[in-house]
Amino acid sequence: MIRVRLNGVEREFADGTTVAAMLAELGRAPQWAAVERNRDVVPRTAYTTTALLDGDVLEVVHLVGGG
């Protein structure tokens, strides 16, 4: 298992989990969302090839109402 910090909370994922697999496990469709890994945006096109590593800090954001 690997431990990551996801949206400020410690979570565990199986070794080799990709960003795409993480979003699927969380039940989140990638449309209108964005992922940051260790302060860099992960491009949508790299979701299936970017594997999470132990100690990663991840942010998953989406759009909400605002002014």
Partner: peptide
Amino acid sequence: VTVAVRRVNLDEAGSGKSLL
């Protein structure tokens, strides 16, 4: 139209209606 960027609340189910 302006929109804001916020963390997805991972404690909630992901099936609810969204702004978009």
